[in-house]
Each structure stands twice: as structure tokens, then as C-alpha cells.
Amino acid sequence: MPKMTMVQAINLALHQEMSRDESVLVLGQDVGVNEGVFRVTAGLSEAFGESRVIDTPLAESGILGTSIGMALAGLRPVCEMQFSGFSYLMMGQFEGHATRFRTRTMGTYTCPLVVRMPYGGGVRALEHHSESREALYAHLPGAKVVIPSGPRNARALLVAAIRDPDAVVFMEPKRSYRAFREHVPEQEEVMPLGKAQIVQEGTDLTIVSWGAMMRMTLDAASLVASQRGASIEVIDLLSISPMDVSTIIGSVKKTGRCVIVQEAPRFVSISSEIVAQINDKALLYLEAPVKRVTGYDVVTPYFSRETPYFPSPRLIQRGIEQTLDF
């Protein structure tokens, strides 16, 4: 099979899961005839028909709210928020119901559904199309939040999300949609939710990152490694919540140094939580303060100003050097 983009890999997961399980259906704005604004749902309507690939009215809360109803009736809806910047309109349904049905009915009802949404910047998009707001969702007890970083893990994680018994927010880094290709096996591949992946082993420093920042982080890490001979371990978080804290702690105990790279603003963010977990569980192993390379706590600027807003390979490189030199 030829190498695939992330868009193609997500599409493959949807095709295969819809073929495997009749209860899986896709709904959202423009997901049918138009095949999604990023063509993520290409071919689905043709293959599975309008009743399983539903072009909905334009209403985010309605999309999630009706998905919850479908899930309660035993279907497995995969709904799409066209852009994460519009997803806040469904926050009431997500917090009030999707994350709670299991607890409030003591397991009688659950919400096996996936909310897919493209997120993040770097594609010179219009206002509200460039934010990274994973922390908003990850803060909610019961929520699951997944962010793939490449085509292969996007496919394997989406399969897991669709089969998961609870609501999963699946945030797709749109900067990575077509930025690179990977080999994605035709046969089924599932990665468990709640597990991070050590993508590169090392002994001198740990980097934790996720989503579109992974590529930049790997580039920066290899540059520092080649320039200084440092041995750097890189962790792809993948599952924002529940978070694989053990893998991070195990790594930090080994290296004693940690850099966290995230696209999102810094305040009350995923990196804040990782620092807190390290503080709880590995403080005395640290050789240097944990360094955070993040977006700034300002409103995401319009695209002509966005490049210096996001972490850059250079900024990540400086963060690594500073932490090694402490």
C-alpha cells in the first residue's frame, strides 16, 4: 500500500470501522456529498449511504446532542465539528451529558461516541481556525481526549476511539493533515487509548509533546543530539486524557531533565499538569527545572502574525539546550 497522509489514514479508519460495525455512523456539516471540508470523509456517503453518513443542519450543540441520543440507543456515532473553534457551542452537551452519563446512571447508559475536530494553527487560516484548546476538554472528568501526531497513529487511535465505550474527543492537527506521509498498514491496527509512545529512546533528557508539535520537536531533538552528542528521549503523548503519567515519570526518573512542547497557551494547560505530575512523583530526580516551550497566553493572532506565536524548531532547540546546560 502506498504511503498515506493523515487525511487518508483517518478516512481509512472510518471506512474500515463502518464496514466492520453497522452501528458506526458519521454525522456533521458537509461530511456527506461534500466529503468534509478537508475530504476526511471522502467516499463514505457513496459506500454507506445517506443514512449512515449524515449531512446535518449547522448546529454544533445539536450535532453532539443528537449524537448522544444515538449513542444512548446503541449506535456509535462519529460526529465532526468542522473546526475546533466552533466546538465550544457543544461544550454544554459535552460537559453536561457526554462525560457524565456513565456516572449519573451508574453505568446503565454510556455514550460511546467520537467527536472529531481539526485543531491548531500553521495553515494561514481565518480567525477561530487556529487554536489548540485541548486543555478545555481534558479538564473535564470522564472525558477522553486524543491527539494523533501522524497518519499511522491517527488511524490506529481513531479505531480505538470508535470502539471505546465512552465519549472521545479526537483532535486532528490540521497542520499535519497533508504535511507528510507514512506507511499505514492495510490490516487492522489499534493503539490503546491512555498510552503514550516513546518514539525515541535516550538517557540525558526527556521531551514530551503531541500533535503537530511532534515533527518540529523531533527535528530539534535530532539537531541538538547531533551537535552535542546528547541522548534525548522523546515521548508522543497521544492520549491527552487519560494521560499516561507512568511513561513520563519513568522517563524523567531516568533522564532527570524534561522539556514539554505544546502549541497551546501555557496557563492551566496540559504542560501545567505534566509539571505538576513530575513535581508529585519525580521531583527529587530532577537535575534541572522542567522547561515549557508553548504558545503564549494571548488571543491566537491572525495568520499574518501567527508564525512567531507558535513554538519553532529554534525555540524548541533553545529550550533543550537550556535544560541540558542548567
Binding site: S61, G62, G65, T66, I68, G69, M70, A73
Partner: peptide, 11 residues
Amino acid sequence: IPHAAGLGYAV
């Protein structure tokens, strides 16, 4: 209310 609509679709 949207749950009812989703349930209706599902049945």
C-alpha cells in the same frame, strides 16, 4: 431535547 431527536433517528 437533542437527545430525543438523536434517539428518534436511532430507532
